[in-house]
């Protein structure tokens, strides 16, 4: 535990978050977008855990559990949407859904 550095942990979390964001913005395949979203969520979770370890408090880990639940729920809804999208449009390209605009 002694080799632990807050600096390093937060930098890692930030890097992961940015990677995830770039993935959401750049990828067109909707499955990859969902994956990238998961990475962003986990990056946020990592930041909580690092912070919890820094102050020796359990709250960071508790928060991570909440994030896990939210992620699970999000994936459940997201996958249903993916199935619908594929069913309707026969493609996984998120931009193809642009014709739904109002």
């Amino acid at each position: 535990m002694s080799a632990f550095s807050v600096q390093f942990g937060l930098t890692l979390a930030g890097a992961l978050f940015c990677l995830g964001l770039v993935g959401v913005l750049v990828r067109r395949n909707i499955l990859f977008i969902l994956l990238s979203l998961e990475i962003m969520l986990n990056a946020a979770g990592l930041a909580f855990v690092v912070a919890g370890a820094r102050w020796q408090q359990p709250d960071g880990q508790v928060m991570f559990l909440f994030i896990l639940v939210a992620a699970a729920a999000e994936v459940a809804v997201g996958l249903a949407l993916v199935l619908q999208l594929f069913h309707r449009l026969r493609t996984l390209d998120a931009d193809a859904a642009a014709r739904m605009r109002g």
């Binding site: 964001l21 959401v24 913005l25 750049v26 067109r28 977008i33 998120a94 931009d95 859904a97 642009a98 014709r99 739904m100 605009r101 109002g102």
Partner: peptide, 14 residues
Amino acid sequence: TQTGQVRWYAAVIA
């Protein structure tokens, strides 16, 4: 601005 592209919306939010 209402293009219907999810990625564009996400970029605007970010």
